[in-house]
Design a protein around this nucleic acid. Structure first.
Length: 281
DNA sequence: AAGAACCCCAACCGCTGAGAG
DNA sequence: CCTCTCAGCGGTTGGGGTTCT
């Protein structure tokens, strides 16, 4: 089924409508028409807008094109580690509430975030042979992926205020708190252990400023006494440490992904943000 | 070089809730 | 209330680019 097909097969619309409605990729001319119309008259009333602007599109289609592509403040390009961190963090709290999550990332659309989740995050889950919605995978995100992103942010010295302030902003969120947050004291303890673990993990990246790291840690929710309680096993000297750690950590989960390419998968996680966005012009 | 497999993401679809009449 | 319309949301699809074999 081609997305270029006109809706002429539909019997629910009048013949005139089906003849005129276009589908599929937008042309430059259509973009220009929509942009000029919105610049002059503003957003909203999309069905009316579509008619008055002379666009042979549904209002829905116009709205989507504007919000996801034409709107001037739409950011293009790769998601930064900060943005990825926020997405992981907020998804932990809100689940698949893409538009709500997008509101916290200025310039990013719900569609983009949804695509990121599907193509990057769920891909990791597949590689690890874990259900992306499982508690085990959430633990992986909180205990490995998010600390890794923090390292990257720290490495690039661009730790954003929005991340640093996230805790205060959302500290009343019991939902996430119940699954992710422990007391700040134990959080700080665990964070220093995560730091050690991360240092061990990467060996090329050293964490020296514990204060800054812990400040962030205090406000973020990826450590959890109930679900990430294997921290004391972190400093094992061989690669089996990862397996041991996760075994201790996730023994309640009936998956066999712990010893099944887990470490490889984890290593690749941190690099995800660097992958070029293909076909994105 | 060429076909297959994979990946990304723009755009569509169906559903839901809000608001007007 | 009920019905209708519209805006918005989340899930899904498929075209086209890239990578692999």
């Amino acid at each position: 089924m081609s997305s270029f097909t006109k809706a002429s097969s539909s019997t629910s619309c009048s013949e005139e409508d089906t003849e005129q409605l276009r589908k599929g990729p937008w042309t430059l001319e259509e973009d220009s028409l929509l942009t000029r119309y919105v610049a002059r008259h503003g957003e909203g009333h999309w069905n009316l807008l579509a008619k008055l602007a002379g666009l042979r599109r549904t209002g829905k289609s116009c709205r989507l094109r504007w919000l996801n592509y034409l709107k001037p403040d739409v950011k293009r390009g790769n998601l930064t580690p900060e943005e990825q961190f926020l997405i992981l963090e907020l998804h932990c709290k809100w689940g698949n509430r893409w538009s709500k999550i997008a509101q916290e990332l200025p310039g990013r659309t719900d569609n983009e975030i949804k695509n990121y989740w599907r193509t990057r995050v769920q891909k990791q889950a597949r590689h690890l042979k874990i259900d992306a919605n499982s508690a085990a995978f959430r633990n992986v995100i909180r205990c490995f992926w998010m600390p890794r992103l923090l390292q990257m942010m720290k490495g690039s010295s661009t730790l954003p205020q929005q991340v640093a302030g996230l805790g205060q902003q959302n500290s009343d969120s019991e939902q996430c708190a119940s699954s992710c947050v422990s007391s700040s004291e134990s959080m700080n303890n665990n964070m220093s252990k995560i730091s050690e673990f991360a240092e061990y993990q990467t060996s090329s990246f050293s964490i020296t400023d514990n204060n800054e790291y812990n400040t962030v840690a205090k406000d973020c929710y990826y450590v959890d006494n109930s679900s990430c309680y294997g921290m004391e096993t972190i400093n094992l000297p061989s690669t089996s440490a990862v397996g041991d750690f996760m075994t201790a950590d996730c023994h309640m989960v009936d998956n066999n992904w712990v010893n099944d390419g887990f470490a490889d998968g984890i290593w690749s996680m941190g690099e995800l943000w660097e992958l070029p966005l293909k076909g994105n012009l």
